[in-house]
Design a protein around this nucleic acid. Sequence first.
DNA 1: CCCCCTTGCGCAAGCGCTTGCGAATTTTCG
DNA 2: CGAAAATTCGCAAGCGCTTGCGCAAGGGGG
Lengths: 331, 331
Amino acid sequence: MAVTLKDLARIAGVAESTVSRALNDKPGVSEETREEILKLAVEYNYQPNRLAQGLAKQKTSIIALLLPDLKNPSYPELIAAVEGVANDSGYQVVLCNTAGSPEKTAAYLDLLQRNQFDGVIIVGGTPTGGKFLQLALENKNNMVLLNMLLEELLLPSHLIDYRQEGVLAAEYLLDSADSRPAALILGDAREYRETERREGFLEASRRLTGSATEVFTGVESRDDGYQVFFRIVERLEPPLSFYITENLAALGLLEAIKSGGYLVPEDFQLLGTGSNFIAGIASPQLTVVDEPLREMASNAATSLLQLLSEDKSEPEIRVYQPKIIAGATTL
Amino acid sequence: MAVTLKDLARIAGVAESTVSRALNDKPGVSEETREEILKLAVEYNYQPNRLAQGLAKQKTSIIALLLPDLKNPSYPELIAAVEGVANDSGYQVVLCNTAGSPEKTAAYLDLLQRNQFDGVIIVGGTPTGGKFLQLALENKNNMVLLNMLLEELLLPSHLIDYRQEGVLAAEYLLDSADSRPAALILGDAREYRETERREGFLEASRRLTGSATEVFTGVESRDDGYQVFFRIVERLEPPLSFYITENLAALGLLEAIKSGGYLVPEDFQLLGTGSNFIAGIASPQLTVVDEPLREMASNAATSLLQLLSEDKSEPEIRVYQPKIIAGATTL
DNA sequence: CCCCCTTGCGCAAGCGCTTGCGAATTTTCG
DNA sequence: CGAAAATTCGCAAGCGCTTGCGCAAGGGGG
């Protein structure tokens, strides 16, 4: 069907090896035959078969980006950053939607193992249960983690100082004369970042107020966020400010507050997580603990490419610092 | 590194071909050797190399889903539907983010041509400029369109009756005693669906009111939607109603209206496009012209798989009907 | 003028898998 | 019990590309 390297060789009257070398800028071909071959390649619209290339070279120049949930509004930015770096180095990026399913995660790692990808970046929140660990162990030289940390297995990772996020959040909400009681609303409490945030928040909170803090967990979706508000507000003395870590849940919570006829930030203060985009999508604009996601994503991609080229050094764990970006949902 | 088919054959003491046949449920192997081989395969954790498989079989069992913009909140649903169908048939889906860039679109089509994918689904809004047409022509038997139509090239397509969307929208907004003047706010006016919506809307509008309708185009992003409101409101007098076709822009517009101190739907009515999810994310809940996206996506995937298995019949163009789902942004 | 070092290219093996075909073995039936 | 029909399996070619190696030329220096 398509024109192959062999065809091209026949047409040019040279050996396949010569064509291959000419096309790949390898030495051992005279400038003049190289040009001739290049010309023919264009003329006949030759496209190397990547499967064959992959098989011969034992690499595909494709990396996979495993995302837990496409709904999260932070991801487009993250994806763009990864793609930018990868494309510049001649890699293609494919997006793999694990949708919270351990089986799907395993299925994609399986593709990795079957040489379909050269490496993967796993983004925080991706389920790591089931066969994950075994597969990860077998491929630990082709994986980097973004926004997560695996305690069972040391991999190159790019993540925030989540504990510090918790501390900043608590200080921001509680460290003023007229501070109100605050509640902490987490997503999947089993994740590393959530446990860290929790500890940071609770510790700072104890230091600042001396009193206990209410914690809600498992609040992940938009709807979860919406629901949780009513669970909270029907209490006798509800907490009046919230640090809520999940993007979508924060939007839902905000919605719930407004629909209950309350004012933000006068009645309830709200502090979320994440990028500008997520902050801007909310109304009023969300105050957030900002994560330098774009930078982290670029670096994660760079890490991976480096891992794939050089031979393995110590897995590098890089920790980034969060900061508060004030919006209109806090006083 | 990994255990290969050849290894397995050596271990089992049979020929490679026998192993291959056993693993692929092909006839010509006795039940007893088959079982023996299967057992060994599990024991040694054999994973067929998909590149080699692809090369030999001339197919990869991977389909690509080309998306113009990951930010669009309708896509997770669409993606899930496509993945569902594909996975059931043993296909993997990879997501390709064209991010509005014709070069990236072409790059992915290029991968298709180089046998990296078996087929692609192209989702409405994906840029079709540049080398697209040439590449598409060469691969017309592996592509289906979702939510778009290419006038230059007949491909299997799944799309809404966009003209009818326009008609419904106009009737909904204008067909009442106290109807207000309506404005039409479109995204990329060069796309098929937008021209159709426009025609439908304008035609119905003319029929119902006899007066002209204002049309704004190029309003795609959230921010575009936000901006356009102020351009509009400084020229025209409320009350007004808007039919705005882009998801994200609708959210922005809604935001702008509220931030201007106006009420929805009392001062401005708003009618958007799309699924439940997008409608629910807005506050107040958006009234939308609903598209059966999930169903369309499943069917598109089915179409593609069919295209890949059977040999080509006439490209089927399937048209779906929209309907209005009332929210709280219209009276 | 000869030898040796470059340079340019072809040969062929190999990446890991599939598959048509024929050989060897077993089963079946007259 | 022997020949024909199945059945089971191995051989080898091939998918399209890369790459180590070796062989011819060509060019320079002694």
